[in-house]
């Protein structure tokens, strides 16, 4: 095979692959539109009790409205480093509840490495800490905050 022939062959392969991908995309897109209009697939007539609709979060790294759906973490630079290193042992909720400075996050990481079997984060440590202090900054609360998020309701006597 000459170099050109070889190149053509591979170009063809890529072309076929793209056709395939595009077809899947069209089919899936069509199915999505159909699904939006008829989520129970009722016109197929076989949606009886034996069938259940499963939740939609199949893509484990789906981001919706700036939130990483699976973990609830805010989308931002370093998100996946946090997902991959900080949500294995404990929930992301433990991370997002806490608002700390870079110094205190670094201390916390050290504590987790010394006592909780956390691995060496390497270059990711700075990425993770930057993500945390940027997206979950410390807010000044003073000695006592106002009551907020009050849900008013009529009290029946």
């Amino acid at each position: 095979m000459t170099k050109e022939e070889e190149f053509k062959k591979y170009a063809k392969k890529v072309y076929h692959l793209m056709i395939l991908a595009f077809s899947i995309f069209i089919i899936a897109g069509g199915a999505t539109i159909y699904y939006m209009n008829d989520p129970n697939f009722s016109s197929f007539g076989n949606n009886q009790e034996a069938l259940v609709v499963i939740p939609e979060e199949i893509d484990e790294n789906l981001i919706e409205n700036g939130i990483h759906v699976r973990t609830g973490l805010v989308d931002g630079v370093g998100l996946m480093a946090v997902v991959n290193n900080c949500t294995n042992c404990h929930s992301a909720k433990l991370v997002t509840q806490n608002k700390m400075s870079a110094e205190r996050w670094n201390e916390t990481i050290k504590w987790m490495q010394e006592t909780q079997n956390l691995w060496d984060l390497g270059d990711n440590q700075q990425i993770i800490v930057n993500y945390l202090v940027t997206n979950y900054p410390v807010t000044e609360k003073g000695r006592r905050e106002n009551l907020t998020n009050i849900e008013w309701y009529d009290l029946e006597n």
């Binding site: 899947i24 089919i27 899936a28 199915a31 999505t32 699904y35 989520p39 697939f41 197929f44 076989n46 949606n47 009790e49 034996a50 069938l51 259940v52 609709v53 499963i54 939609e56 199949i58 893509d59």
Partner: peptide, 12 residues
């Protein structure tokens, strides 16, 4: 693929 084509109707 997974979500739309196969995902919506799964056996109980």
């Amino acid at each position: 693929g997974a979500e739309i084509v196969y995902g919506s109707n799964l056996l109980e």
